[in-house]
């Protein structure tokens, strides 16, 4: 894969997550998220929990909220598609904020056929549930992550930050 247009998105994201004050990260990888998850797992200041299903990560982060611990969920778009029930009946019902970093699979520059439906329908599903989402596609947007994290706490519900392919993989396709 050419990385001529790539930025160090993973490194910048790692630092921005720490700037959010995150001390617990719960994750289930897809291939875009894996390098970031590997970084967090190696960070001695962050408790990292590998889960078997994405909604576990949502619930673990929600429990950590009640100890005053800042947490984050890192999953792929396909995994997020499995979570709306738990996000609605745990986080929306009890007004528990949870911040999710999610690969923006199925975007127009992601030519994997098995990601196409996620790209076309995931954001409308989030909007139907009134879960705010934003897009992180540049280092400038990464730098605003701590502000978005604070906004999530104020929202008292799930907030999804989609990580764009251009940030993680550079501007050219494999």
């Amino acid at each position: 894969m050419s990385t001529e247009n790539a930025v160090d998105g993973y490194g910048a994201l790692h630092q921005a997550i720490k700037a959010c004050g995150v001390r617990l990260a719960a994750s289930l990888p897809d291939d875009w998220m894996a390098p970031l998850i590997t970084r967090l797992a190696a960070d001695p200041e962050i408790t990292h929990v590998r889960v078997a299903r994405e909604s576990e990560a949502v619930a673990i982060a929600s429990g950590a909220f009640f100890t005053g611990t800042r947490s984050m969920v890192l999953i792929g778009a396909t995994g997020l598609f499995t979570c709306p029930g738990e996000l609605a009946t745990l986080n929306l019902r009890h007004q528990i904020p949870v911040f999710l970093l999610v690969s923006e699979r199925g975007s127009p520059d992601d030519l994997r056929i098995y990601q196409e439906v996620q790209g076309r329908r995931l954001k409308p599903v989030l909007e139907a549930l009134d879960f705010p989402h934003l897009r992180i596609d540049s280092l400038e947007a990464v730098a605003r992550l701590p502000q978005a994290y604070e906004w999530c706490r104020l929202q008292k519900r799930p907030v999804v930050a989609f990580l764009a392919r251009t940030l993680l993989k550079g501007g050219t396709r494999p």
Binding site: R23, A59, G63, G85
Partner: peptide, 22 residues
């Protein structure tokens, strides 16, 4: 006590999040 009124199947995950951070 936290009585989970939804997310059937995920109370133990919620408790794990508390246990790991306390």
């Amino acid at each position: 006590t936290f009585y989970m009124h939804g997310a059937m199947g995920f109370a133990s995950s919620f408790a794990l999040g508390i246990a790991l951070t306390m």
